[in-house]
Amino acid sequence: MTEADVVLRAVGVHVAFGGLRAVDNVDLEVRRGELLAIVGPNGAGKTTLFNVLAGALRPTKGSVLLDGEDITRQPSHRRAKAGISRTFQHVRPFLDETVLRNVAVAALANGHRRAAADTRAAELLERVGLGGRLGKRAGELGLGERKRLELARALALEPKVLLLDEVMAGLNPVEVQRIGELLQEIRRVTSVNIVLIEHLLKVVHTLADRVVVLDAGAVLVEGTPAAVFRDERVIEAYLGRKYAAS
């Protein structure tokens, strides 16, 4: 693994909220072409780590590198333009705007003019299955549609890395299936790298090339899905509780 194979890298990232160590000395690399899943129990620090990668949060310590360039001090909007785009765990569409505008405004970041941004947005919305909803207010969409809207908005930035924070949470099996297929299609037709925070282990199994398990802010294990889910520490820290509950 040479440095050129790593698109996004986090080095020794710490985030403390008061006395709480939400992220504790995490090293992470996103390799070119892979789909990386991040799993871990509630409160493990997954979203906080995303916020650091996307620039929404400054780490207390450590740094973030995109294609080898230190971007730790870059604000969110610069990173969005540089190629890191993200969706929010709790979806945040622009509720009063139309579906089309929600995505078109992100397409402006590529220097598109309005007409081109609209066209680009319409294409992406078509692809995520919202082609018939362009003129609707985003506030009128259901949760599944909002998640796909955010996906289209993130894609409109033409990212190098797509950070997806639980895009399937709260959806019914049909919608989950649909987003899974969508992600596979995106990988097929583009070279975007996807990092996926996901609770559904089945999804992780089928989609991910590599898995990183976070627990209490630190990396517990990483490896292929098969290897990781067989690891005793993982079963104990995370799966054990889940399996016991079900």
């Binding site: 969110s76 569409p93 402006l108």
Partner: peptide, 25 residues
């Protein structure tokens, strides 16, 4: 109506989401 206005209404709607969409809030 301009791109500035689009960005402005994104910011009005949700500053974090606007920033994540490449808007310098």
């Amino acid at each position: 109506r301009t791109r500035f206005g689009w960005r402005l209404s994104a910011v009005r709607g949700d500053e974090d989401a606007a920033a994540a969409s490449g808007v310098d809030v």
